[in-house]
Write a protein that binds this DNA or RNA. Sequence first.
DNA 1: CTGAAAGCGCTTACAG
DNA 2: CTGAAAGCGCTTACAG
Lengths: 329, 329
Amino acid sequence: MKRITIKDVAREAGVSITTVSHALSGQGVMKQETRDRVVEIAKKMQYMPDWNGRNLKASETGTLGVFTASIKGYYGILVDAMYEECHANGYEMEIFITDSGDSLLQILLSRRVDGAVILHSGFQERHEKVLQDSELPTVFLDREIQTKYVSSVLFDSYQTGRMAAEYLFSLGHRRLMTIRGENTYDGIERHRGFEDYLKEQGYPLEADYLLNGYFDRWKAYGEMKQFLERKLPLPDAIFAANDDSAFGCIKALVEAGYNVPADVSVLGCDDIELSQWYVPALTTICTHMTDQGATAMKELAGLMRGNCSGKLHMIKGRIIERASCRRAE
Amino acid sequence: MKRITIKDVAREAGVSITTVSHALSGQGVMKQETRDRVVEIAKKMQYMPDWNGRNLKASETGTLGVFTASIKGYYGILVDAMYEECHANGYEMEIFITDSGDSLLQILLSRRVDGAVILHSGFQERHEKVLQDSELPTVFLDREIQTKYVSSVLFDSYQTGRMAAEYLFSLGHRRLMTIRGENTYDGIERHRGFEDYLKEQGYPLEADYLLNGYFDRWKAYGEMKQFLERKLPLPDAIFAANDDSAFGCIKALVEAGYNVPADVSVLGCDDIELSQWYVPALTTICTHMTDQGATAMKELAGLMRGNCSGKLHMIKGRIIERASCRRAE
DNA sequence: CTGAAAGCGCTTACAG
DNA sequence: CTGAAAGCGCTTACAG
């Protein structure tokens, strides 16, 4: 197999490769007729420029990269939300799934993308340092960094944790349980906010009523099942750190013969699409995931234009009242 | 900002760039001590090779590309399933979301990837022709092509459509309805199989009982609602072309006061994770989505090794009996 | 075991 | 308005 190069097009058109390059890129001045003819010939020959040749010399790739460890569930929604905004700003979008921060950094700084959105817990401080030196415009979705070239879009998880506790309190519930999430920024902060509020109200969380759901449906289900087997008093209400673990928790409760919300209220967090379809429809806290993704990409486009230096966008949660929580008698 | 190049490393280490290149790539023979020293220095200097420089000369990029128009829902699950298999075969995976077949082809043939999995209805015959000439190993997930370098992994949608009709028939249902999907390969074939079976049995599908759900939850919901307003006799059973439209359909039925499956049986297709969580748990046809993705990537890795020429993998559906269908009295 | 040199396919000042 | 030439950062025969 033989690739068609710019040389082939030049020969066919009877011009220099410079002229071909100019004609195709729209750069420089030239007779319109020459331009049209060259473009026509290149098209007929199915000429596809070698990306590597082009970018080796050129300073920009026209591509923004999204770096993540997974596109499952929550992550997929975030990434998906970035796409439209990316195109609207005239960039191609490329998604890199990597398992380590090292390989992420490698790709990030190998001149394949002009800017990046990063959502990857494997990206550590030592990686951040190198990134800073590179001056590559970057937006983080899972940590707070603000420098000339780096912004963050964060969900206000601490405040959300407080909001969850406050809401359940306002319904009259006092014996609360929580199914906390992973040890990521979100997981830690959501939980901290929840505990802080309870402590302040004088009803600190009891150890038996802290379950580990790891943001996972099945793990939450398992933890809840185990809890029920211990025959401790049922809590008045449960705050599940995300909707998925709320579903797992409700399933365990229902299977054990309890009714939600008659016997116990369950509050989720995220407002994924399923939540309004679930039975009972899930009362939850909307984290505006689509918004997070779009905001991140918009912020990146801004950094690219250089018209603003690093910012912190803090996105706030909002309670969505449905059927899985009720007021205490 | 100044990038560190191979020259900088060579100077620092007091060797030639050839030696640096050899040391880092593990190619060629050299004193272990020299290799170690160079690697050490490169690491300390945070040297990240320029991807474009590397690939311009090198014949392989070590990267496989996945091309799709979206990573939402169904597509996300497929793509996600490819990742592990890709890494297991020693390749990096890159996902390109593009809106047109033209831009897809452009990227495909720009020497950024060594092979590709394509799942994109915008990729047309004229694109296929050019792809053939390029001899790039490729696996399609949404059409049947088999050449020396191109394989397909398909879900046997026609057979699945037949299976759906046959199953509902076996439960004693005769007045059937279907909520068909989009005009993609899957949508068309699933529907054709369903209709064919009914025709053969002497109970051809009535026009009023053919709804268009476009594989979409809300569209199916809307269509079903409209149907119910027309006060036509309820069907005995409904085949929804995918689980999502089954949920939409059930929601409309429940809101109108009907019970599933007491008043009408509903059969889905796909077996997405939600189906077993739904109330009623959805009887559906498992399309082995994860398997499809993994098989596609495995097949691509095979094509890369050149140890087999293009194949067709046909994946069969399997009925999963749950609670949304019941036997007619 | 190491290095000088050619060259991958482009872009981009610069000269004409 | 067009083209010759330098050069982007690497890899890879090849020579020593």
